[in-house]
Design a protein around this nucleic acid. Structure first.
Lengths: 351, 351
DNA sequence: AGGTAGTGTGGGAGCGCTCCCACCAGTGAT
DNA sequence: ATCACTGGTGGGAGCGCTCCCACACTACCT
């Protein structure tokens, strides 16, 4: 019944024109009301709003996108396979923050995975078609070509962890350096003296900063940093296990470990168990992220909390500013748009 | 540098018209090539393709959407809070299947959560604006108004589990009845005689079908179904724990439990432990879903596997057909578009 | 030769918006 | 009275596509 082929008149969705006729005003005026322009008299605005309500008018996004050259959508790009996304609580927390910040906006959020080469090509095509107004980039490695592509296409983007100290893109990050210091200082205050560090992926800037924090906290405490106590990991459980085993072999006398992530700490814990070390009696353990894993570990894991939801919110703030600035091409200052948020040590029984 | 204000000519993205000029053909012909129409000579097609490549032409989606009245996007709607989505492996597997099936399409997938009232209103608005060509509905409860809204807006939709035996929407489901029978028959073959069942949410049709399968398997075995051995759960861990405790109190002699989900089984396991029952020695336990939880449980859990990825693929197939049919309004037969996929029992040491 | 299909092809007419220019009061300063 | 302005308003001109009608031009029948 009804609806012959879309091209037909009336019966389909009402248009701006029809609302205008109903309200007895011009098309331009209705458009102004819909878009919240202040240059409309109160009486006219009321009349238009009534017509909109009566007709159940909903703007046609495609027409708007075509005329205004924008899409009202932004993408959250995850350069990882789905699996990792679901496994790491980091992403779901981030998504929650982003979702919340977008709640009162017209903006639509698209979640795009770009783990495989095929997916990345698809993404490039997608971006080339300018199907989003802006991009949120999380978990980007130092050599990722994505940021350059975005810059070349002149698409506003915000990155979740800067790629280096010279990051050009606006970014939001937690204070990795400070967080690492907190962890080490905590261990020192507990009387630990031989504190090892299992790092994150070395091509991730944040992991480097954590190493710096670890090192300098020890130096400031007058202990000096023993490079033999630093073992590279990769943020995974297996990596943590391997690194811990290596550390124990090299230095059986260590009495504490700071792991670059909770997942890594879980791996380290396993290796410690296998070596017959008790936590925290023989070796104290501190993780990073304060994820669900930390709370459920046996024993519960002391960890450095990053305000991930807050980071998500701040990324959206930055991005929306960026997107809005694009149109009037306004005050594009050289103000560095790099946000760094404080971390917090959550003490539990593993240390 | 460059790009004054979008409205300006040349320098921006190339248009169909420009490609046509370059290839020395008309606009219509280029459009035909882009959309893969067969009514173009090979020579012309080659010329157009060359022009497209030279200019780096990418169709403007907004213009296409406006002219053709379609969006080339579909939504996967999850009427649950984000949290549940990330917690249950069901969703990530489904997403993987859907993503795979969409891989070779132009279609864009949008993931939309509609857990809170606010989110649901936003979704309604979104759908009213016809921003997607079709909708995939997962985990819908019997009284959800969403399917009706979709029907009213004439938006094609496919549902992952039918709401009743009289489901009108196209649907894809696993054989809940058969799966439950497999579980019970397995327990019977292991010599168990007092088999209890912890159900899923009773307002979910699939949960009802599992109860039917459980009941009839027992009746067919000549044991008769003892209603006192059926305890309602809600698919959660706490629900499983509570139900198991209730069952043990009512019937301390039971020797097996069939839980409506792996998560439920995890809760039941806990309650069994607390009551001093050994698994499987005293009580055998079987779950449903064969999720990661089942493999990692102690002891590993026997479970009924649903081909979730495959379900995701089939849903996409159905939906794309539905969407395509919309335009020519063709052979809309009364063929029931209800797909039911077989389950498989994965036997592990809990039974 | 005239008809009758069938194949390619060009281009007009929208799709429903936003942008912006023109215009029409009013209001206050000159 | 004249000349600015200024807050409001109408509507033309696109945005870049798809759809479809019209018009070749061939090929094959009567």
């Amino acid at each position: 019944m009804a609806s012959h082929g879309a091209r037909g008149r009336s019966g389909g969705r009402p248009t701006l024109e029809e609302v205008a006729a109903r309200a007895g005003v011009g098309r331009g005026t209705v458009s102004r009301v819909i878009n919240g322009s202040p240059r409309v008299s109160d009486a006219t605005r009321a009349a238009v709003e009534a017509a909109v309500a009566e007709l159940g008018y909903v703007p046609n996004t495609a027409a708007r996108a075509l005329a205004a050259n924008r899409t009202d959508a932004i993408a959250l790009v995850v350069p990882e396979p789905e699996t990792r996304f679901f496994a790491e609580p980091y992403f779901s927390d981030m998504l929650k923050g982003v979702g919340a910040a977008l709640g009162d906006t017209e903006m639509q959020l698209l979640l795009i995975f770009a783990g495989s080469d095929r997916e990345r090509r698809r993404l490039a095509q997608y971006l080339a078609a300018h199907r989003v107004d802006g991009v949120l980039l999380v978990s980007v490695h130092a050599d990722d070509p994505l940021p350059d592509l975005l810059a070349q296409l002149e698409i506003p983007a915000v990155i979740s962890g800067p790629r280096s100290s010279a990051e050009t893109l606006p970014s939001v990050d937690s204070d990795n350096y400070g967080g690492a210091r907190q962890a080490v200082e905590h261990l020192l205050s507990r009387g630990r003296r031989r504190i090892a560090h299992i790092t994150g992926r070395l091509d991730v800037y944040g992991a480097q900063r954590r190493i710096d924090g670890y090192r300098e906290a020890l130096i400031d405490a007058g202990l000096g940093a023993d490079e033999a106590l630093i073992e590279p990991g990769d943020f995974t459980e297996e990596g943590g296990h391997r690194a811990m085993a290596a550390l124990l072999e090299r230095d059986p006398g260590l009495d504490a470990v700071f792991a670059a992530s909770d997942v890594t700490a879980a791996g380290a814990r396993q290796a410690l168990r296998e070596a017959g070390r008790r936590i925290p009696d023989d070796v104290a353990l501190v993780g990073y992220d304060d994820s669900a894993i930390a709370r459920h570990m046996e024993p519960p894991l002391t960890s450095v909390r990053q305000p991930i939801e807050e980071m998500g919110r701040r990324m959206i703030d930055l991005l929306l500013t960026e997107v809005a600035d694009r149109r009037p091409l306004a005050s594009r200052g050289l103000e560095r748009r790099q946000v760094v948020l404080a971390t917090e040590l959550v003490s539990r029984s593993s240390s």
